[in-house]
């Protein structure tokens, strides 16, 4: 698919979702859509570090929580939402840079365990420092509309996808992928592995904070500790692997599968929804190691090959016969 066609497709999807927000007032649909956008943004942000740069962070929720916390506090403190988000992203970038420098000196499993320890420590600390629930003021609750959070979440996921697309096509992204494939080989060819990992870490953290900001704007009530929970990290990883790690579309498809699947399971099999989803996840990962994206590509190739074989045998493509017969 050419770059121009690809851009057009993305634009159409974006406009379609933007239109959806203005034509429906179905609160359940809006809620599911917003949750999907937030998960898609969070998963895509993890994908920058884990999928592009190959660094499996298990402490990603710390940045999601930080973005949510700062945005929420400033916004409820009467600051304009865009400014609150910008400050949250700036602080997150600074924190990520400070944390990333020592963390990224670890490699492989040591990096993963180190980030997990950091994530858990931040999670517990957040609960101790901010024990009170954060709810919207009573007047705001009674006037709450889903439209604003819907467009903010849609805008956030659009930004995250745009950044991911740019990264994947840029020299910077190529450097990250070189580090992912073979850090030693990349270093030997002049790629500064630590620098690329640092940049991926900071970009990934900032995008996670952006997803957190959307969460903070959407949620009517939650304990500030909640977005710091390591569960967010594991859910993001689940989504990425189910959808297709290292791809742009994968986290988006995975988030739809995750949110809709979870919603269906919670209403049909509430007692075993976690177990059911866990088994489903294992099955998908075992049978489709490249996630839904790879499955789609395989299917496409299969269909294309079938068409090519048929053309070689008959001289016409599938469907052409019917078309000719019809005409």
């Amino acid at each position: 698919m050419s770059r121009w066609v690809s851009t057009m497709v993305w634009l159409l999807v974006l406009v379609a979702f933007a239109a959806l927000g203005s034509i429906t007032d179905d609160e359940r649909l809006m809620t599911l859509a917003i949750q999907t956008f937030i998960f898609a943004a969070l998963a895509s942000s993890w994908n920058v570090l884990g999928g592009f740069a190959g660094q499996v962070s298990l402490g990603h929720a710390a940045f999601f929580g930080l973005g949510a916390l700062i945005t929420r506090e400033l916004w409820l403190g009467e600051m304009a939402l865009p400014l609150a988000i910008v400050i949250a992203l700036a602080v997150t970038a600074a924190v990520a840079a400070a944390v990333g420098l020592p963390m990224l000196r670890f490699r492989g499993i040591y990096f993963s365990v180190g980030t997990l320890a950091l994530g858990v420590a931040v999670w517990i600390t957040a609960g101790n420092v901010w024990p009170g629930i954060s709810s919207l003021p009573a007047d705001a609750l009674r006037e709450y509309e889903f439209t604003g959070p819907y467009y903010v979440a849609l805008g956030v996921v659009a930004v995250v996808v745009a950044v991911s697309m740019w990264l994947k096509r840029s020299k910077l992204g190529l450097g990250m992928m070189a580090v992912r494939e073979d850090e030693e080989a990349a270093s030997a060819t002049g790629v500064s592995a630590l620098a690329y990992k640092m940049i991926a870490f900071v970009i990934s953290a900032v995008l996670a904070a952006l997803a957190g900001a959307a969460f903070a704007f959407f949620s009517v009530s939650y304990y500030p500790q909640f977005p710091f929970s390591v569960v967010w990290t594991f859910e993001a990883i689940t989504i990425v692997f189910v959808g297709g790690v290292g791809t742009i579309v994968g986290p988006l498809v995975g988030s739809v599968f995750f949110v809709v699947g979870r919603d269906m399971l919670s209403s049909t099999f509430p007692e075993i929804q976690v177990l059911t989803f866990g088994v489903l996840f294992i099955v998908v990962v075992l049978l489709l190691p490249g996630g839904f994206v790879e499955a789609g590509q395989r299917l496409f190739k299969l269909v294309s090959r079938g068409g090519a074989d048929q053309k070689a045998k008959t001289g016409i493509r599938p469907g052409e016969r019917e078309g000719k017969e019809k005409t």
């Binding site: 634009l11 406009v15 933007a18 927000g21 203005s22 034509i23 509309e145 439209t147």
Partner: peptide, 13 residues
């Protein structure tokens, strides 16, 4: 387009 849709969305909503 997104900004217009968002503004329009608010009005529509």
């Amino acid at each position: 387009a997104l900004i217009i849709a968002a503004c329009g969305g608010n009005e529509d909503t």
